[in-house]
Design a protein around this nucleic acid. Structure first.
Lengths: 263, 263
DNA sequence: ACAGGCACCTGATCTATGTCAAAAAAATAG
DNA sequence: CTATTTTTTTGACATAGATCAGGTGCCTGT
């Protein structure tokens, strides 16, 4: 069930106990902080036991208190409408920040749940906010994360409002590929932490459609699917299937992005 | 062409020359600043001549330098993909902030264009950022705007990925209604600053569909349409057509929201 | 006032994708 | 290991909404 990659992610992260020694530092909030400021940040961070698959980091409606930086694993955020439908608003990988959408309210507007065993750094927001007064660089970092999330969301809206099923899925796969590559893994292999159902919900499609498109892309030799293991065989073909993207997206995707998706 | 409402908006705003005397203060960044801090903010703001319909506040790819707070009129933001398709990412009303999505890059990721005569307060970002160091309340205000934008975007994603054409349009109208009501006008009458085409693009629909749904809602006595003038006859029916919404949306929508939509 | 061009509306098709149904494969429980 | 449930795949069919086509009215500039 756990493949090499997830094993590796777990192994490399469990030992880390400070931001300074964390291999995700360059992807996360600490990016470009001085050693001294790193220590300050470190001192407010809480690192608890791992969340098992299915455990919730926080719930929609619960009082907002902390941001969460992922150290390992994978988290999804979703909202529930008043009639009970769920809408997944994002999947998060190590180094990414979960909880940004709750910052200015007293409550979280989404649920966050671990979809595989996950370790996090919990960042109590009131303390963190205090730190941003002392450390302008940290403030800039937070604002930057928020702004990047907004740009991501724009991209997602473009996807949902103009692209067909195949393009949505191609984009989804390429996005994951880029993100795991940035974390030091091969861009050509993805182990999906989420079910077809979750992918469908996230992309605004029916499960059956997701399944069919996976099959179609496999038949076209663009990918090789084996349950949740996906090999990318032909990036060019996938990119073509993904269709046009926003200007500067490529450039953008090469930057370090501390936070992505909505949550 | 210009109806009573837009005339009124223009009239009441043109005279304002300081944040202190601005009637939009409670909807905008100044919210909850002390008089002294208000003056500081005021001193960095530039107020130029109005943008005529069709004039651009800034262009995608242009270097990011300022945020823009609308004083009157209406602005749309849109991105262009590398193959030339346009995607409208937001419509902005007086009191709302345009440009947030460019904050952490050196370039604007979207175009912003006035879709009717529009006056703005230009807020040079480097200076503004400096002010956020001095005025934690202003920093909080900015972070709050960003976070609210993210929640809005989530809502939009839900709309695009789960709702049918009728629900999208009902939501769109109710959203506009709420926003203009918050600005002191009747919630029952909307003068649309944007064309059917722009509505269609924004909502991920074909123009013809928008037109048909308008007709259908009119036939159902929920609204009365006369070109760009829309009377809301039956809020309950519209709300029902809009379908389920995210928990807490109602509560949320009653807060003062300095910025909305992506841009 | 008139011509040209948009913006908007409405009807007739066509199609991508949703829905329903059922089987195969994989995960989980016992 | 076997039974049961859940996830995934595939096929057949239905449908919302896109596309195509045409018509009307409105605004613009001359």
């Amino acid at each position: 069930m756990d493949n090499q990659r997830t094993q590796a992610i777990k192994r490399h992260s469990f030992r880390e106990t400070t931001c300074q020694s964390c291999t995700l530092r360059s992807l996360c909030l600490p990016l470009s902080l001085t050693t001294k400021n790193l220590e300050k940040l470190d001192s407010i961070i809480a690192r608890g036991r791992p969340f098992e698959k299915g455990e919730m980091l926080f719930r929609q409606g619960e009082s907002f208190g902390s941001l969460f930086a992922l150290r390992s694993g994978c988290v999804k955020t979703y909202s529930v409408t008043d009639s009970g439908e769920e809408q997944i608003t994002g999947f998060y990988l190590p180094g990414e920040l979960v909880g940004l959408s709750g910052i200015d309210t007293d409550i979280f507007p989404v649920n966050a749940i671990a979809i595989e065993t996950t370790t996090v750094c919990e960042i109590p927001y009131p303390k963190f906010e205090g730190l941003t007064d002392e450390i302008p660089e940290l403030k800039r970092q937070l604002i930057s994360s928020l702004s990047k999330t907004i740009r991501r969301d724009m991209q997602m809206m473009l996807l949902l409002s103009q692209k067909d099923a195949e393009a949505r899925i191609a984009n989804f796969l390429l996005d994951l590929s880029t993100r795991i590559e940035r974390r030091g893994y091969s861009a050509d292999f993805i182990y999906l932490a989420m079910s077809r159902n979750e992918i469908a919900n996230y992309l605004g499609l029916a499960v059956e459609t997701v399944s069919r498109i996976f099959s179609r892309l496999q038949k076209a030799q663009a990918i090789n699917v084996n349950g949740r293991a996906v090999d990318i065989l032909d990036v060019a073909a996938l990119t073509k299937a993904a269709g046009s993207c926003l200007f500067n997206e490529k450039k953008d995707s090469r930057e370090e992005i501390p936070s992505v998706n909505t949550g």
